[in-house]
Design a binder for these strands. Sequence first.
DNA 1: ACTTCTTTGAGACTCAATCTCAATAGAGGG
DNA 2: CCCTCTATTGAGATTGAGTCTCAAAGAAGT
Lengths: 144, 144
Amino acid sequence: MHNTDKLKQILHKKNLRYTQQRQEVWDEICSTNEHRDAEDIYNSLRKRQTNVSRATVYRTIDVLVKNNLVRRLDLGDGRSRFENKMGIAHHDHIVCLDCRKIVEFMNEEIEEIQEQVAKEMGFEIVRHVHQLFGHCLDEKCPNK
Amino acid sequence: MHNTDKLKQILHKKNLRYTQQRQEVWDEICSTNEHRDAEDIYNSLRKRQTNVSRATVYRTIDVLVKNNLVRRLDLGDGRSRFENKMGIAHHDHIVCLDCRKIVEFMNEEIEEIQEQVAKEMGFEIVRHVHQLFGHCLDEKCPNK
DNA sequence: ACTTCTTTGAGACTCAATCTCAATAGAGGG
DNA sequence: CCCTCTATTGAGATTGAGTCTCAAAGAAGT
């Protein structure tokens, strides 16, 4: 389904209005696979003459996150990052402490064990955070 | 080793000064195994007539975290929680979304797999965050 | 077009955490 | 015990991501 249609569909289902601003924010988020924060997204919009206010960027992102179109990433540095979730399989993240590169990983075994562990401890998991922080072995990375 | 001695030892090694305030903050953190934030710790100190300023509480916690006496926990709700790390084995956390109860877990298998995964992706892990969020099956928990 | 209700923008506000800087106080040496 | 050299402290200002307010603008159904 095209991005525009998907957005319209979801907004309609939730009795929310389809607006130019919401479309612009959604387009901007779909335009890359980087892990950007709200300020980055706001600035990218301004750079291409699309003036959506900061408040609206935040509000729209909230709508997209709540409706599962966008994923919020908290890497513990005090601001949320966002990634387009459309047709993207679940994954977790490895972050390089030197160059701040973010790489995605997914391991079915870990997913299963953590489910089992939670069950044993009397929990039903809704979501999880699994992040690895370390040093990448990339040549171009500083501290090499 | 007694708490006071441990603190003195570490401060000395780092050429930092042993002060009454640092001792008080460290004592307060050692006094329970709850996962409290800086404000909680600050308030507990005031409640027992120990006046350490908010800034000093934050600064002392930083010193303790950097020197591995205390662990910082970021559960994604906008404030850091802290736990005494002295003689405490590594563990991760499960959080109940209803009653905010925090339970600790540890699974050697997951630890090993994540190490392996990181290696395969060209990373050397320094630390990790692994948190499970869901609903506990406790009778006393709301939403039952 | 009319009406109703939602959304937007601009700036004020919140809140955890950090910074500033003058005053205070460890710690080692004499 | 005092001196000097620095580190530390307290009080309040500041930061910065994110949220709130409210009047004006704009969807969407009729």
